[in-house]
Design a protein around this nucleic acid. Structure first.
Lengths: 169, 169
DNA sequence: AGGGGGTAGTTATAAATGAAATCACCAAAA
DNA sequence: TTTTGGTGATTTCATTTATAACTACCCCCT
């Protein structure tokens, strides 16, 4: 329950009331976490994937064979997360990792047949879940939400370090 | 950099392109994390507080003397997080914890004088930072963003377990 | 040709987290 | 009054996650 019922017969609070409920960073965090948990539960239940694994799979699906670095750039994940998620996907047989013939340091990730199968299964799930989110809002609200998040993200991105991947989708 | 420059001369991607960039849960997560890191850095630098400590302080400031459970309800934090953050605040001398005279199991949290001082210092910082976020958007976008997050949060809250507090503000 | 400085990716170490166990207590029923 | 089931809060422990260190390599410069 969000706003506990009981009367607050409490005298000793500070003068200028500050409400977390109305504070955007808080709202953003709470909403993001709830959404993430919902999606994570579904990815896990239906395909045994974590959010980060799903992100990596999505990027490799999108780009085709590509480097872990590229995956990181497209998924806002740091290299450690990419490395671990990719290793997990390789272990599950959804991805293959090979050496980059053009750069001895680099690696290349590509989907296996099984990876493609899973990918084509997860994408509709993701889209479907996203659609159920959209259900709760008007078309206009949804559009503005997306745009506003994008703008906020860029605006803030300028005053903060590189993305570590953070909380899951 | 978000969209790496290089042409993708890559043939082997899946048929139906799926773009993480355009996927709301992803955008929400990335934005939330960036905002959280920005705020966390400021709270830490200026007042030596973590996000969770700040949340607890904000709630106790808002409600006055109250139980850890109440703090959890108002801050979307689970009891373990509240317990730890409260302990840290007590150690820092910003909060005092006492026994609930009406219930031997319960505890009561109240701010010390020092706690009040810090609170009245952090609140303007938080408001100021929030205002710089708002700078990046139009008034209308900001308002819709808040409303949309609220609605989304409630909409999703219905299909997911209780809030664990998750990623910081 | 052989440093020096830099990048790609992985691995190790330390700190943060969450689930479950624990402790102390309450309140209702027998 | 003792038992039983349950709640508030803390603590423990296994896992997750972040930070830092490391390995292997590239490339430019001299």
């Amino acid at each position: 329950m969000k706003s506990p019922k009981g009367k607050d017969a409490n005298p000793d609070r500070v003068p200028q009331p500050f409400d977390l409920e109305d504070f955007l960073p808080y709202r953003l965090s709470v909403t993001s976490n709830r959404v993430s948990r919902l999606f994570a539960a579904q990815y896990a239940a239906q395909f045994g994937l974590t959010i980060f694994e799903w992100r990596v799979l999505a990027v490799v699906g999108r780009l085709g064979t590509c480097s872990p670095t590229a995956v990181g750039e497209w998924s806002a994940m740091d290299k450690v997360k990419v490395s671990r998620a990719a290793a997990a996907l390789v272990a599950k047989g959804l991805l293959r990792q090979s050496l980059d013939p053009n750069d001895g340091r680099g690696r290349l990730l590509r989907m296996t047949r099984k990876g493609v199968t899973v990918h084509t299964g997860v994408v509709p799930l993701a889209r479907g879940l996203e659609a159920t989110l959209a259900d709760g809002l008007t078309k206009a609200e949804w559009a503005t939400l997306k745009k506003a998040l994008q703008k906020l993200s860029e605006h803030v991105g300028g005053m903060v370090g590189p993305d570590p991947g953070g909380a899951p989708d």
